[in-house]
């Protein structure tokens, strides 16, 4: 599924959008960055409650399609700026990671 379609279906808030035509293949949920580095893979969706600059770095390094910040956690201005500069798709939702994951599973991801 393309990211644009997924954003629409899950009613995600777009914080920064760079490449909404990218494919989504799988999901990883985590807030400990070392675990995310080790387990998240390219083209996945990464769901987290972290909203600082290093999230953008980890998103770039893992090559995930997008980051969804769950439970409407605050995202630092510097992180938004960096995501925009580096071309990272940064999204947000009031839903919990579990709710998001359930919906993604229903969509076959």
């Amino acid at each position: 599924m393309k990211l644009a379609e997924l954003i629409d279906k899950l009613e995600l808030e777009i914080i920064t959008a760079d490449s909404l035509d990218r494919e989504v293949k799988g999901v990883y949920i985590g807030d400990l960055l070392s675990n995310v580095m080790a387990k998240a893979e390219a083209d996945m969706i990464w769901i987290t409650i972290q909203g600082h600059q290093n999230v953008v770095a980890v998103a770039l390094l893992t090559g995930v399609t997008a980051v969804i910040v769950a439970e409407d956690f605050q995202i630092e201005e510097a992180a938004i700026k960096r995501a925009r500069e580096e071309g990272v798709n940064l999204l947000r939702s009031p839903k919990t990671a579990y709710q998001l994951a359930s919906e993604l599973a229903k969509l076959g991801i």
Partner: peptide, 16 residues
């Protein structure tokens, strides 16, 4: 709180 210091850093280095 920033998601570091989980005690997995060096393990990742070793593993990979």
């Amino acid at each position: 709180n920033m998601g570091f210091g989980a005690g997995m850093g060096l393990n990742n280095v070793e593993y990979f």
